[in-house]
Write a protein that binds this DNA or RNA. Structure first.
Length: 291
DNA sequence: ATCTGTCCCTGGACGC
DNA sequence: TGCGTCCAGGGACAGA
């Protein structure tokens, strides 16, 4: 699922592709939960605008336009932002793949999950936003408008400090993992990197936040940052739907220590990795290394 | 104020 | 082989 590293990799790859290009045409699927701004409005108001900058805030992307407005994008769980010539098996359902010849199985064809398609007036490759489960979001913000989602974000995970985490943690009784997943204290951490960071810091995910010491908060923030930076370096985690904007897989899924490794030996001590549920989210940890 | 549970959505895994 | 059922999971929201 797209978390900070996946969104950042997407930003870095998409920015040179879209910045400076003028939008010619926008095609969308029908009005839905996915569109915070009615799709008809996007189709009407985006053409003619040039993208001037692409920024990331937590797991959100913000495309700034030449009229000062900003297009807010969130990839949700299964969101995929990619360029026209991308090809990947992750862009096709199993049923679709089965109906195609092996050679055709990786060529992308816009389907009912391809909710946004942006074409540019230079005639070059278009940009696509596909999202099977529609937990993603698209919203056009006015020139001086903002969004409550952005307002609520805490400090970005890449610039967070141990003391910032500690200041919030000492006042909270929720599991430390839940605190990491909430975007209001530190923004950008999701299920994969929360589990990986807690493992590296040797902290049990279910421990109450206010039972995590100041120095442990420091170790935790350091561990999370290390994991996030390494994941960005390798192109993010392609575990289910995520792919890089050119269609290639990221590499971090091969480096994860505990996430989705239930029953496998802990890389440090060999104890079997356990899976529990915290706040309705799968959680993976080593019962021996994490206390 | 904080915490917990429910819901949005769909494909894939699993059982019969 | 085919159908029904369950599950995942980011984040908003309601109710405790």
């Amino acid at each position: 699922m797209p978390e900070l590293p996946e969104v950042e990799v997407t930003r870095r790859r998409i920015a040179p592709f879209v910045v400076g290009r003028r939008i010619a045409k926008v095609r969308t699927t029908r009005k839905s939960y996915f569109f915070l701004t009615p799709p008809a409005r996007l189709e009407r108001e985006l053409p003619g605008r040039t993208v001037v900058e692409l920024e990331r805030r937590g797991k959100y992307l913000l495309a700034r336009l030449d009229d000062g407005r900003r297009l807010l994008l969130h990839l949700g769980m299964t969101g995929q932002l990619f360029v026209e010539n991308a090809s990947s098996v992750r862009l096709l359902s199993a049923a679709t793949r089965a109906s195609l010849t092996p050679e055709a199985q990786v060529s992308f064809v816009p389907d009912r999950h391809t909710h946004l398609r942006v074409e540019f007036d230079d005639g070059g490759p278009a940009l696509f936003f596909r999202d099977v489960r529609k937990f993603g979001k698209v919203r056009l913000l006015g020139a001086d408008g903002t969004d409550p989602r952005l307002e609520k974000l805490g400090v970005d995970a890449l610039s967070a400090t141990g003391d910032e985490l500690w200041a919030a943690a000492r006042k909270r009784k929720v599991a430390i993992k839940s605190l990491l997943l909430g975007q209001d204290v530190i923004a950008g951490i999701g299920n994969i990197y929360a589990d990986e960071g807690l493992f590296l810091a040797g902290i049990r995910p279910r421990r109450a936040a206010n039972k995590v010491s100041r120095s442990e908060c420091q170790s935790l923030v350091d561990a999370v940052k290390r994991v996030l930076l390494r994941s960005i370096e390798t192109g993010g985690s392609s575990i289910s739907d995520y792919l890089q904007p050119d269609g290639s897989d990221g590499g971090y899924q091969d480096e994860r220590r505990v996430y989705a490794r239930t029953g496998e030996p802990c890389p440090k001590c060999g104890t079997k990795i356990r899976r529990i549920v915290i706040g309705a989210r799968s959680t993976h940890f080593c019962p021996s290394c994490q206390r």
